[in-house]
Simulated assay, not measured.
Amino acid sequence: MEQETRLTESQPVPHDHAATPGTLRPGGRTAKVRRAVLDATQDALADTGFHALNMDRIAASAGVGKTTVYRRWGSPVGLVTDLLHDMAEQSLPAADTGGLTGDLRANAELVRDTLTDPRMGAVFRAVIAAAACDEECARALAAFYRTRLAEWAPVVTRAAARGEIPEGTDPVELLRAVSAPLYYRFTITHEELTGAVTERAVTAALAAARDGAFLRE
């Protein structure tokens, strides 16, 4: 039985929901439990990475009964999956600077600021490592980026309407071209992500877009 001094959910989570973390948006005590557990998960990923993620330690750190954590999230993969859903929901909205150059620069700077942040950079490194070896984590990470790309897609659509780039430019492909060089340096070569790197990525992606490189087929 869970100790009364720990956070517990007011009602049990149905088994089918527990098998798919992040599909609920609970309120009240259940929301507090989820917030505490996801914060503890993020801390653990930043400190020790995915492979050291331990359900019992997450429960203790969050002040939540172990039974609740195992019932709702099931495994470390379930924790990471739900954390990614939460991160997508909490991400900042897209910029609207009035021009595509400014919007893409804001996007690139957001990516760079996230990856170079000591805490969030470590979290993303751990999540990317988890996705490389677990299919469920990979799907969750892909869903996270689909959500973020969809949030930023209107900046490309507006730019095409203003005549800055050709009509029919694929927003997702253009946005990927901006962030891809940053993630390459972050995950593969471990090079410093400087302002110059960010600006070069924006300039190259814009030039390609104006030449029609990202037109939908």
Rank of each mutant, 00 (worst) to 15 (best):
A36S: 13
E199S: 11
T23Q: 08
Q90L: 14
L115T: 01
D56H: 04
T114H: 09
N54I: 06
V37D: 09
Y145C: 05
P181Q: 02
A46R: 12
R35H: 10
A40M: 08
R112S: 09
I58P: 00
R105P: 06
A201N: 05
V155M: 08
G63F: 02
A150V: 05
D134Q: 09
T169K: 09
R148F: 08
A88N: 11
L110K: 14
R57K: 03
L84V: 03
L38Y: 02
L215N: 10
R25L: 15
A126W: 12
D16R: 00
F144L: 11
P14M: 01
S10N: 09
E217M: 05
R125Q: 10
M87A: 11
R139V: 07
E167N: 05
L79P: 01
A180R: 12
R112W: 03
T30C: 04
C137R: 07
R105E: 12
D86R: 14
P21I: 00
E9S: 01
R119P: 01
A161I: 00
H190V: 00
L104D: 11
E191T: 07
A161F: 02
M1L: 11
A36T: 02
E192M: 02
E217L: 09
E192C: 05
A150L: 09
D39K: 10
T187Q: 12
G195N: 13
T116E: 13
A95W: 12
G49N: 04
E164R: 06
Q90S: 13
T30M: 01
T68V: 14
A36P: 11
A36D: 03
A18D: 08
N107Q: 13
G195W: 08
A180Q: 10
R71C: 00
R72M: 05
D113V: 01
R57W: 06
Y145N: 11
D170Q: 04
R146A: 06
A177E: 11
A19N: 03
P21L: 00
R185D: 15
R216G: 08
E2V: 05
W152Y: 15
M120E: 10
A108E: 04
D39A: 13
